[in-house]
């Protein structure tokens, strides 16, 4: 579905050459939920921007359903970390969700249905007429998720979407995104620096090394499909997987420091 092959990205600026991504190769199967986790500053956002077609790699390719990604591809949506800056403050919540559909030329009746369904799915059925800035941070990120759902993407990329919300809201949003994934069946690539979050959410966790980034390990998460904050996080297997990811990230950090 989404294939990253020998991706390499170097930032060249003012005499400083930063090798953000060394050599990345992995694949995300259709309909799967894959988390990417790595130490901070390891080029996670760079990777996501390359996947979204927002950034051209120095070498290597990203392909989506067999077609190389050279610009933002059709059927791909992104939820950014900065929810406050990715919503249009001059548009009401429903219009924010509606705008990509209008741009795609979807008929009015269908649009209304999709917007209603998406806002309902994120628990904001009564917020259609509010402005984003009238909502709390967690609710704003729900609007951004609703916008992505209404767009009916085949692939949804999320860039540390819950990094800026408080812990309780975060747990709610994690469950919400699992719900959305199971209900709408899109392919999900979820980038985070939070190890617990990655293990709790994903079917697979791809661990990255420090930059220049490589894949450190690609770990299948064999937890049951039904997950909830209490039992899943209390599961001994969860602790085991979490420990393994943690050790790998620590190793990556140490290696990053010595080289």
């Amino acid at each position: 579905m989404l294939a990253v092959e020998e991706l390499h990205k170097v930032y060249d600026g003012r005499g400083r050459r930063v090798e953000a991504i060394g050599d990345l190769t992995f694949e995300v199967e259709a309909g799967s939920f894959v988390c990417v986790v790595g130490p901070s500053g390891c080029g996670k956002t760079t990777l996501l921007r390359c996947c979204a077609g927002l950034l051209a790699p120095t070498s290597g390719t990203v392909t989506l359903s067999g077609a190389p990604v050279t610009g933002p591809p059709e059927g791909l949506a992104v939820v950014f970390q900065e929810y406050g800056r990715s919503l249009f403050p001059w548009l009401r919540v429903a219009d924010n969700v509606d705008l990509p559909l209008r741009a795609a030329g979807v008929a009015k009746a269908t649009r209304r249905e999709l917007v209603g369904e998406a806002l309902g799915a994120v628990g904001l059925a009564d917020a259609h007429r509010a402005y984003p800035w009238q909502l709390s941070g967690g609710m704003q990120q729900r609007v951004a998720i609703a916008r992505a759902i209404a767009y009916q993407p085949r692939v949804l990329l999320l860039d540390e979407p819950f990094a800026a919300v408080d812990a309780q809201t975060r747990a709610d949003l994690e469950d919400l995104i699992r719900d959305v994934w199971r209900r709408f069946g899109m392919t999900l690539l979820f980038v985070t620096h939070d190890i617990d979050e990655a293990v709790y959410l994903g079917q697979r966790v791809i661990m990255l090394t420090s930059s220049p980034t490589r894949v450190a390990e690609d770990l299948p998460i064999d937890l049951p499909d039904e997950r909830d904050q209490l039992t899943t996080r209390g599961d001994p297997r969860f602790a085991e997987l979490r420990g393994r990811v943690y050790a790998q990230i620590q190793k990556a950090k140490l290696e990053g420091r010595t080289t």
Binding site: A52, G53, G71, A77, V78, R85, S86, W90, L99, R102
Partner: peptide, 21 residues
């Protein structure tokens, strides 16, 4: 805002709509 500009790019909001919104 660059994030908002990226949002328009990913959701393929272009042309007159992009200029206005």
């Amino acid at each position: 805002d660059p994030v908002l500009a990226d949002t328009c790019r990913t959701y393929r909001v272009r042309g007159g709509r992009r200029w206005w919104h």
